[in-house]
Simulated assay, not measured.
Amino acid sequence: MPESGVTGEGFTKPARWAAFFAVAVGALLGLPIDVLVLGGTMPAVAVIAMVVWGFAFGVLPVAPQTFMFSAAPGRLESASAIFVSVFQLSVGAGALVGGLIVDHSGLEVTLWAGAASTLLAAVLVWIVRQRSSTAEPVVPA
């Protein structure tokens, strides 16, 4: 899968580029959803939006694992356990919230909420990365 190679390249760069890459992946997940809501009735627009979204979604499982494993190279088992737990919790929470929004507001609002939450997550990654780049590194004892 080409997205796996892109992920490896994006997250093996210095941390500032990895943060930029994470924000770009978040945008590539959120923006096609907006495009689908606005112009999804045109087949060419829908196909292009789905290809972009599919590429970004293919990066999604690989990107956090690559980042976590490079951040904790001596603790791969612990990092894997944390990754799986958080990922499954996120899937469950997203399904619950998405289901409630569909039940109470409809499918179009759900798509907008999904796009907004994805873009918000990308912005939060960027903000946290900017703040952490000015902090002093923590040296384990």
Rank of each mutant, 00 (worst) to 15 (best):
L111S: 03
A113Q: 06
P43R: 10
L38R: 10
M68S: 08
V52F: 02
V35T: 13
A93V: 14
Q88N: 14
A24T: 08
A71C: 10
R75Q: 08
F21N: 04
A27I: 14
I101Q: 04
Q65E: 03
V97K: 15
P61T: 02
A63E: 03
W17F: 04
A18C: 14
A56W: 02
P43E: 13
S70P: 01
G40Y: 01
A113Y: 04
L107K: 12
P32R: 12
W17M: 11
S80H: 08
V23F: 07
V84I: 15
A18H: 01
V109R: 05
V84L: 14
L31D: 01
G106H: 04
G39P: 02
P64F: 08
Q65Y: 01
S90W: 02
V109A: 10
A81V: 15
S105H: 12
S80D: 09
L89P: 00
W112S: 00
V86T: 09
I48Y: 00
A22C: 11
E77V: 06
V35W: 00
A72M: 12
L38Q: 09
S80F: 07
A72P: 12
G39I: 04
T41G: 06
A115I: 09
A18K: 09
D34V: 15
V25D: 01
V23N: 09
W112L: 13
V97A: 12
P61R: 11
A63Y: 01
S85K: 10
G39R: 15
V97D: 02
G99Q: 12
A15D: 13
A95W: 00
G114H: 06
D34A: 15
P43C: 04
H104Q: 12
G40H: 04
M68T: 04
S85Y: 02
L100R: 15
P61L: 04
V37E: 01
V91K: 07
V86H: 05
A81C: 13
I101R: 07
V51D: 06
G74N: 13
V23R: 12
V86E: 10
V86Y: 03
W17N: 11
V51Y: 02
V45C: 07
S78V: 15
V102F: 01
P73F: 01
L96T: 06
T110M: 13
Q88I: 10
L100M: 14
W17Y: 06
A95P: 01
A19I: 15
G39W: 06
E108T: 14
G30M: 03
G58H: 08
G92K: 14
V47D: 10
P73K: 09
G26Q: 13
G99C: 15
L28F: 04
R16F: 06
W112H: 13
E108F: 06
A116E: 04
V52P: 00
A49I: 14
L28Q: 06
I82Q: 05
M68E: 00
L36N: 06
L111A: 03
S80A: 14
E108P: 12
L31T: 09
E108M: 12
A72N: 07
D103K: 15
G74Q: 11
A95M: 12
G39N: 08
P14F: 11
M50V: 10
L29S: 03
R16H: 07
L100S: 11
A24W: 01
A24F: 09
G58V: 08
L38T: 05
A79E: 00
R75N: 09
A93Q: 09
G39E: 00
G106M: 11
A56Y: 01
